[in-house]
Design a protein around this nucleic acid. Structure first.
Lengths: 156, 156
DNA sequence: CTTGACCCCGTACTAATGTACAGGGTGTAA
DNA sequence: TTACACCCTGTACATTAGTACGGGGTCAAG
């Protein structure tokens, strides 16, 4: 690629694997900075491609666009703002670690389900997605079925 | 809990930790079966609580409501439908395993970011979320920056 | 200097997943 | 029997993250 050449929004979008409307949408939301225009057109740098890909990756791991924005804005921070962003990073790390545990349990549950229900010779009665998940989940996060409330103990 | 007592939608919702509107929404979508009404009211079983919790769990691990529905409907399947559901389960397992890899890489990247940017004494120039993610991601899924296209090689 | 691909802005629409009324009915405790 | 919490249906609104469209401007190859 010739670095002298100008990258229009269409090419940015193509390179970053998003739609042009998405790029403009990100600029409106303040997630991407709108580049200074030449003759009414936006022209981009390679770093913008990287930035959009980063946004997509952050989305993939569970960030909302607002969170992405917070993090990207925070990059240029200093002093006190740093401890805020460090805290947010650590919160996200905990969140993701919890999700990893949950997903591992899910794989086990689904495997059990696939083995019992999906097996060619199995009988229909064995197809209990609920049972597979109930057992597998207990290690991860349990909500007890005891103390269910019903209607005759009405709130007054 | 007295099993003789009747569980109205409000209590079902409370026990399953969702809103009553959500329950009705699930019934409209066919994710939950609407129970036969007595005097115009819906009355539920404990199994309905379990079912809603299962829906929430499946959502947590990345199922859309339509996918949840597919799986729940498929539980009562037999014969040929079984191999379909087994295949879907296996697809989901692969999907989740890929996600786990991605999340592990994300934790590493965020840790690096928190360490470099968030540390009390660090300088602002070290705050590069993009760099932290770029390196960490390569193991997981890479999109090369070479072969970028720009505007002067215009399509005709 | 025309033409066709591409860009601009602004607005409106979509899909998924709920939430929130409005207007009326029900059931039970006092 | 009345009050009040709770239920019903139906419709509309909210949020997130885009996507599409209309009406017009720009640029570069032929």
């Amino acid at each position: 690629m010739n670095k002298q050449q100008k990258m229009t929004i269409g090419y940015l979008a193509k390179n970053a694997n998003v739609g042009v409307e998405t790029v403009r949408f990100y600029e409106r939301k303040g997630i991407l900075q709108q580049p200074p225009k030449q003759g009414g057109f936006r022209y981009y740098q390679e770093s913008d491609v990287k930035r959009i890909r980063l946004v997509k990756r952050l989305q993939d791991i569970g960030f909302t666009l607002d969170e992405v924005k917070e993090f990207l804005v925070a990059e240029t921070c200093c002093g006190e703002a740093k401890s805020v962003i460090r805290q947010k990073s650590n919160e996200k790390i905990s969140e993701i670690n919890a999700k990893i545990l949950e997903l591992n349990a899910a794989v086990n549950a689904l495997q059990k389900f696939a083995d019992s229900c999906g097996a060619e010779g199995s009988v229909a009665i064995g197809c209990q997605l609920l049972d597979c998940f109930e057992n597998e989940w207990e290690c991860c996060k349990t909500t007890s079925m005891s103390n269910l409330e019903t209607t005759h103990e009405r709130k007054m």
